[in-house]
Structures are given as C-alpha cells and as structure tokens.
Design a binder for these strands. Structure first.
Lengths: 199, 199
DNA sequence: TCACGACCAGAAGAATATTCTAGTCCGGTG
DNA sequence: CACCGGACTAGAATATTCTTCTGGTCGTGA
C-alpha cells in the first residue's frame, strides 16, 4: 500500500496516518492533532520530522509522484515496440492508481502542493524528466514514420490524458465501468492519437 | 474575467479578492484576513455572505464549473455534425481555460473542494448531467456507425482528457507550445479516439 | 416616523498551528 | 564503566488564524 519503504519507523507512521486522515476528512479539515492521535507520535515528533502540516503533504506528494514515475520509466525501458509500449504505459498508469487509490486521490485532489514545491525545483525536475523520457522513447518510432511528430509536451497529454481523466472520475466513484474494462479503450485511444498507421 | 455577473457587489468583491489571493498564495496559505484586506470587506461581512473560507472556495468552484459547463452544453446544441462538434468541444475547453486562467488553475488545483460539495449533491448532479448530455449528443452518430459505441463514462475521458492534461501543464507554465498550436492535435486526437472511420 | 431586514464592523472567543524547553534513549569513546 | 553528543520525543506555552457575537448603519415599505 505505502510506497516508501526504508523510512524510519516513526516518520513512516506519521506519513501513513496523515494519508489516512487526508483521505477521510480532506487536507484542510484534518488537524495535526488528528495526525498525532492516529500515528501515536507527539506534536514535537511530527514537527521534528516534517516541520508542519503542509510539509507532510509535500513529502507524501513527492513520494507518490516518484513512485509513479519510476514505474513509468521502467515500463518504457522494458518495451521496444511502439504500440505495445504505449499499451503498457496506459496499463501501468491505471494499475498504479487502482493499487494506490488513497495516494492517487491525494495527488489528484491536492495539486496545490505542487505549487508550494515548485520552488525547490525537485518536482519540476522530475516532471520535466518524464516528459523528455517519453519523447525520447518515441523518437525512433517517429523517425520510422510509425508515430506522428509532435511537440514534446503534447505526447504525455495525448497518451495519459484520457486515462488520467477516467481514473479521476473512477476515484471519486463517478463511473459505472471498472478500470479493467476501460483499459482496452483507453490504450486504443492513446495509440490512435499518436499513430500514423491509418494515413 | 469573472464569470458570475449579477452578484451583489460586496459578495462579488469578496469572491474576486479570494480568487486573487488563492492564485497568489494558494488556498491554505491565504487567510481570511488577506481576503478582508484585498476586498475591503470586514470579517463580519465575509462570514455573513459565505460563512467561512472553505465556503468561499466552494462558491468559486461551483460558479466556475457552472460557467464552463453551460458553455459546453451550448456548443453541443450548436453542432449537429460529429467531427465538427467534437472539434468545437475541444476548442471551447481550451478557450475557456485560456480566458479564465486563474479560475481554471483554482479548479484544477483544488479538486478537494469537490469532495466537500459532494454531499449537497448539486455538483454531482451537474457532473452527471454533462456526462449524459455528451452521450446523448453522440447517440445518433453511434447509431449511424460513425462513432464507436462505448460506456458513457469513457466518452468524456477520451474527448476532454488530452486537452485537460495539456491545459494543466500549460497553466503551470510547463509547456513550450501555446494552446492555439496544440488545439488542432488535441481535436484530431479526440476525433480519432471515438471515430470508427478508419476501420 | 417607525419597524424591519439586509448588510456591515470590529472586538471577543475558540480552535489550530507552531515553537520551545526539557527531557530520554542509544551508540560511540576515553 | 562513565560520559558525551546527537537523534528523537514529549507536552506545555505561544502565536496565528478561524469563527462567532454584539451592536450597530442604511435603506425601504407600512
């Protein structure tokens, strides 16, 4: 369930408790006292490890994004063929969300955290690296005329956008379809969006 | 810039000030005192009109979604032909965001607000209605074999997802492309995702 | 004029976040 | 062993922020 092993135990307990509270009541409605009680830590301890509620959210956010992105990069490395790789990309996206629903909900609902983190550059760096990795991975397929040549920033929108949007509704309980049943259509759409085959 | 005319003046001033503060510092970092100073209203007045910071955000959120959705529904009404309608849908989405960047940023960053509002049902109702309207609009095209038959909840993901994802990056200043230049590709992708033409 | 409701002001009070002081625990070192 | 130092913890004290409350003003209709 949790994505960052190897954390000191107390720190970990605080992160887990925080995520549980955020899921249950939302970020602004959970007090650090809620987190204190649920984690068993003291206020002092919480502030020692993180230095504030916002900073706990930031740690969760970065850990979540990192785990997701590492998985994505691994998927790209494992695939050569264009269509199979894109299908796997979509599959990974959906599966990751299905396996970490609380974390995914948190990431999607609290994009605000990203702004607070924009300064320190780490996250901006990670996002940029993923953009580039996807474009890089597609390059040979573009050269071979199998994949449309597009601006870098469009690829991630076309490939992941539909899955992201579907997953968001799924996480909020607004879909009738299951993720499994939607996966095929979403993968096909991703492929159709960048493929040059039909023309 | 602002989307809800006809509001009492003071109420309006508070909403505008709140949005400006949220944009500048983020929701959690702006205090109601910030809003008080920027709007020229008093604390009492703010609580009279809204009853809390969260409720101001909720009002902004609903007003924004409503304005966006009304525009979307109007676009659907104005178009019969499938491809033209879908192109217009994407165009409206992108244009709305480009014309209301602060509000759009707020809506995308603070999805948490939606959770708080889920209970009162109004928003859930609106979202559901839009889903249905899109599916309804597509129905004749599906029947005619021009458009793929898919679960209702997939259409909005396929049509709007890529634009949404692109716009999100654009709003955070993470794209090199402009919205105008991306529009064509995004519209084509939306069409390709649901069209049955090539097969 | 007067009563009334909508609206507003700012002080008072309650809730929360954050800092501070004073530890405990444990591993290394003379 | 005795002791030092750093990582960590506790909970009281403080500061900040949210929310409520009391007492208005202002305009309108009877």
């Amino acid at each position: 369930m949790s994505v960052d092993d190897g954390e000191p135990e107390r720190r970990r307990a605080i992160l887990d408790a925080a995520l549980a509270c955020f899921t249950a009541k939302g970020f602004s409605a959970t007090t650090v006292d809620d987190i204190r009680i649920r984690s068993g830590a003291s206020v002092g301890s919480i502030y020692h490890h993180f230095g504030g509620k916002e900073r706990i959210a930031a740690a969760l956010y970065v850990a979540g994004i990192r785990d997701y992105q590492e998985g994505t990069l691994a998927v790209l490395r494992e695939h050569q063929e264009a269509r199979a790789g894109i299908t796997a990309l979509v599959g990974h996206h959906l599966r990751w969300i299905a396996e970490h629903p609380d974390l995914a909900r948190f990431l999607l609902r609290r994009r605000e955290t990203e702004v607070a983190l924009a300064n320190d550059g780490e996250l901006r760096e990670m996002n940029w690296a993923l953009f580039e990795a996807i474009a890089e991975w597609l390059r040979p397929h573009v050269a071979a005329g199998r994949v449309r040549s597009l601006p870098t920033d469009l690829y991630s929108a076309l490939l992941i956008g539909p899955s992201q949007e579907f997953a968001r509704h799924w996480l909020e309980g607004r879909t009738k379809s299951t993720i499994e049943r939607a996966e095929r259509s979403l993968a096909e759409a991703a492929w159709a969006a960048v493929s040059l085959e039909g023309e």
